[in-house]
């Protein structure tokens, strides 16, 4: 007798768990030839709200960890991803219709990007902060601190785009709510399985699937969200709406840059976009 297919249900990733959308809605994800691939959850504003509360409660302990520890955890994500590369390659081939060699290259790039940011975790403070010379008997230090909860609009495409916007945000101690690529959401939920099994605490990363235009405005105007990364927003009108939504609460907004080549070795700007510099004056000579 033929064995029945065990098909995967692609759900959301909120607070370390995989719930269905509160709204009960799903949408069809198509493969490269336009055929049916799977159903994905269509996240609602309440899912976005739940994800923000999860990210908010995960922030104090995640940001208080040592940078070295966060670096180790990001490296662990890379390790676990390496172990599951066959699954990711198969999903990328199914979703994009690319060759096996190309798919392998994307997974390599995603893993390498995680390792790259893992190494930066305990070095970013030395590069962007410092001891300042001041005209007075003070030690004067500037140190970067994470902003808080960051809403991230992931670029369109499977896996690599998501990794390259997600890793810099959490490396520096922020927590995040990510709206995954609308056309290629499946690898992002599989990546959530990797995150869930690699010591990333619950709530640090929350992944929603569904239309950016529907979920984005709720995140942009949410007063508990402290930063907004619009990398994946290709529609300039939507980008503008989201920026306006973010203005009320003075969020840090990283605008989309159509000329950006995500595959190139990144600069530090993805990390510094959601860091705030704290300067401390401390009396000396006493």
């Amino acid at each position: 007798m033929a064995r029945a297919d065990v098909r995967k249900t692609y759900k959301l990733y909120i607070n370390g768990q995989f719930p269905r959308s509160e709204s009960g809605r799903t949408f069809e994800v198509l493969d490269a030839k336009g055929g049916f691939l799977a159903n994905a959850s269509h996240a609602s504003r309440k899912d976005a709200r739940d994800a923000v509360s999860a990210a908010r409660s995960a922030f104090p302990s995640w940001s208080a960890r040592t940078a070295y520890n966060r670096g180790q955890i990001i490296y662990r994500v890379a390790e676990v991803l390496e172990g599951r590369r066959a699954q990711f390659e198969a999903e990328i081939i199914a979703a994009e219709g690319v060759t096996a060699a190309k798919a392998r290259q994307y997974v390599d790039a995603a893993i390498d990007r995680l390792v790259w940011y893992a190494g930066w975790a305990d070095k970013i403070a030395q590069v962007t902060g410092g001891a300042n010379d001041v005209a007075g008997p003070f030690f004067n230090h500037s140190t970067p601190e994470p902003s808080g909860v960051i809403a991230v609009m992931a670029p369109q495409g499977p896996l690599f785009g998501l990794v390259s916007v997600l890793a810099p945000v959490i490396t520096t101690g922020n927590t995040c709510v990510v709206v995954a690529s609308e056309a290629y959401p499946l690898t992002s939920i599989t990546l959530a399985e990797v995150l869930a099994t690699s010591d990333v605490p619950a709530g640090v990363v929350n992944i929603l699937t569904g239309p950016q235009a529907e979920i984005g405005p709720w995140l942009a105007s949410h007063l508990d969200v402290h930063g907004l990364d619009l990398t994946g927003v290709t529609d300039p009108d939507l980008a503008r709406t989201l920026e306006e939504g973010a203005a009320d609460s003075l969020k840090r907004v990283r605008r989309p840059d159509p000329t950006e080549d995500l595959l190139a070795t990144p600069a530090l700007d993805r990390m510094t976009a959601f860091l705030e510099i704290k300067t401390v004056w401390h009396p000396m000579g006493i």
């Binding site: 923000v52 908010r56 709720w218 105007s221 949410h222 007063l223 508990d224 969200v225 939504g245 609460s249």
Partner: peptide, 9 residues
């Protein structure tokens, strides 16, 4: 107001 509030407020 129509948008979600935050704990900082």
């Amino acid at each position: 107001t129509g948008h979600y509030w935050g704990h900082d407020y």
